[in-house]
């Protein structure tokens, strides 16, 4: 039987998020040549990028419009996705703040199980098998999803979006939003001061720890982030607990789990709870003056030395190679 896949897309600030393109790439792979991929868009007004969803891998684009959908509407989204799920064998959501809230509601409405925060997904002997980190990344579990539809949330940055096929645009179908009772309402979305890039979404993350000595020194990391471009600044729990950085920036077991292409840990010892949040990064760089710091055990590249000397030099060197490009 071929897979019929529903991808629940997400938008932020009026544009489809990159993670949705990642899900479409995964869906396309699962669907193969015989299956199909539908992209669901829940919005008050269709967000920018809807016309490109076919170019990123969708066969059909289903747009469910409702005035309440200008923001996330937990009950409205759950009711709509549960109804769109009919006729699909797999429903993919992103393991984002919204997706993690929405997926269990949908699964409960449909009476099926949910595999959360999955990093790999594929068919094995006709059964859908998900790979997911458990025990704070200290073990990796493989589960078989036996129900139809199979509901899965996928960790951001686990898959590469397909290059956009610009010849495939448009073809958007409006779908009805079933009646729902809004038991919960999102009143406001307060943007964080540096609304910029979230650590879970950024292709590059530079994180600082207690080695930075004081909050003002995070300027050194912000400079490096700016030189790298498209980079978020993360933090260890020690500096978040000390009030130097916002909890939103915390990487680790009690913070965010990140899988960027490049993770640079500066003045971070590499405690197991920190590693839980970043060990799936593709490339890890560590800068620490203690050559025995545990962070060097997971780092692909390390520099032993004083971060206050190394950071300005690194920023300068990055600027140099960037300007050569």
């Amino acid at each position: 039987m071929s897979a019929t896949i529903l991808v629940v897309t997400e938008a932020r600030e009026g544009a489809v998020r990159k993670v949705s393109h990642e899900l479409l790439a995964l869906a396309r792979e699962l669907a193969g040549t015989t299956g199909s991929v539908d992209a669901a868009v829940l919005a008050a007004d269709a967000p920018g990028g809807v016309d490109d969803l076919r170019g990123f891998g969708a066969d059909r684009v289903l747009v469910a419009r409702h005035p309440d959908f200008a923001r996330y509407s937990p009950d409205g989204f759950a009711t709509t996705v549960a109804s769109l799920a009919a006729g699909h064998s797999v429903v993919l959501l992103a393991a984002t703040a919204t997706g993690k809230d929405l997926a269990p509601r949908v699964a409960a409405k449909l009476g099926v199980g949910l595999a959360s925060d999955v990093t790999a997904l594929g068919f094995r002997d006709g059964a859908l098998v998900a790979t997911r980190p458990v025990y704070a990344g200290r073990a990796i579990q493989q589960v078989k999803l036996r129900a139809t539809p199979a509901i899965v949330t996928v960790r951001p940055n686990s898959f590469q979006p397909r290059p956009k096929d610009a010849s495939l645009t448009g073809a958007v179908d409006a779908v009805a939003v079933p009646a729902f009772e809004a038991r919960v309402t999102v009143r406001a979305l307060k943007a964080s001061e540096k609304a910029a890039l979230d650590v879970t979404e950024a292709p590059i993350v530079v994180s600082g720890g207690r080695g930075l000595k004081e909050p003002a020194n995070f300027k050194l990391l912000e400079d490096l982030a700016e030189a790298l471009g498209n980079t978020a600044v993360g933090a260890s729990r020690a500096v978040v607990d000390a009030g130097w950085r916002d909890h939103a920036a915390q990487v680790g077991q009690t913070g965010k789990t990140v899988s960027p292409g490049l993770y640079i840990a500066v003045g971070i010892s590499g405690a197991i709870q920190h590693l839980a949040g970043m060990r799936t990064a593709k490339t890890i760089v560590a800068i620490n003056r203690d050559k025995d710091a545990p962070i060097f055990k997971v780092a692909d590249y390390g520099i032993v030395g004083d971060l206050f000397e190394i950071l300005p030099r690194l920023t300068e060197e990055i600027r140099k190679v960037r300007s050569e490009k």
Partner: peptide
């Protein structure tokens, strides 16, 4: 949901210290 297996995470391939300072 049926658990098929549990494994240790793949060891990251041994990294290297590029240098000092």
């Amino acid at each position: 949901i049926e658990v098929l297996g549990l494994e240790y995470p793949a060891e990251r391939k041994a990294g290297r210290i590029v240098g000092e300072g």
